[in-house]
């Protein structure tokens, strides 16, 4: 079997894949964007945000964790799936306290960019207004759990790339929250540094590098200039260059 001859079909586009690739890997490598928040090229996939749900026959699967297999007929960019993705994005908004107009991350935030991408015009669902703990103990890094979407990217980045294992997610249901792997539970007692991948991978404003928030003015930030689709494809290409 020659790997190069194996293809999957996403929305009528034939896409090659190699053994071991997920649908997401193959799609991004071929320049086909599947919306995602908890996936990041180079980190093991998790499958928690569910934005990358695609359909194969009458089955829904998360593209980031489903293996690509020859002959798959996959629906991705359909009105139904994008409506579901919008609803999931709205869920992430109401579950936390997302204060876009006053958030340092505005313009650099993937959740916000995803909302624009999917044409989200309101929260739709009632707000939860959760009370979540803020940790400002670290001199260089702020942890505001109010804005956390539990994507687990910092957990994986810290464990698998930084090799520091600073974070974990604890608690069930809406009680789920990010915890710090120190006796005090405070970030200051962890070995985390602002140069760590974990400090820079947060898609939202939950982990912020202090004193950097407004170096780039609003209006000139990442998603002010490019769409989340372009950035998603760019991140994949960048990871491939690293290899």
């Amino acid at each position: 079997m020659t790997a190069g001859n194996d293809t999957i079909r996403i929305d009528n586009q034939e896409i090659p894949f190699t053994a071991g690739q997920t649908i997401m890997d193959a799609a991004l490598a071929a320049g086909v964007y599947i919306p995602h928040l908890c996936h990041h090229p180079g980190l093991p996939p998790s499958g928690n945000c569910r934005l990358c749900m695609v359909e194969i026959g009458n089955r829904s699967v998360a593209a980031c964790i489903a293996a690509a297999t020859a002959g798959q007929q996959i629906r991705n960019d359909t009105p139904e799936l994008n409506a579901a993705r919008k609803a999931i994005t709205q869920m992430l908004f109401v579950e936390g306290n997302h204060i876009c107009p006053s958030c340092e991350k505005t313009g650099n935030c993937k959740l916000q960019a995803m909302a624009y991408h999917l044409g989200m015009l309101d929260d739709h669902f009632p707000q939860f207004y959760p009370h979540r703990e803020l940790d400002a103990s670290h001199p260089d890094i702020l942890l505001d759990r109010s804005r956390c979407i539990l994507c687990d990217l910092c957990v994986r980045a810290s464990r698998d790339v930084d090799k520091k294992n600073v974070f974990a997610i604890a608690g069930r249901g809406t009680q789920a929250h990010l915890i710090v792997n120190t006796p005090t539970g405070k970030l200051v007692d962890s070995p985390m540094a602002k140069t760590d991948l974990a400090a820079n991978i947060c898609p939202v404003g939950a982990i912020l590098i202090k004193e950097k928030g407004y170096e780039v003015p609003i209006g000139q930030r990442i998603y002010d200039r490019q769409t989340i689709r372009d950035i998603g494809l760019y991140e994949q290409a960048e990871e491939k260059n690293k290899e």
Partner: peptide
Amino acid sequence: FAHESCGFCTPCRVGTQLIQK
């Protein structure tokens, strides 16, 4: 279900709460 959802994925974690509401 809202109480027993493990909280891992968005639709179940948030959706079970919203259904209850």
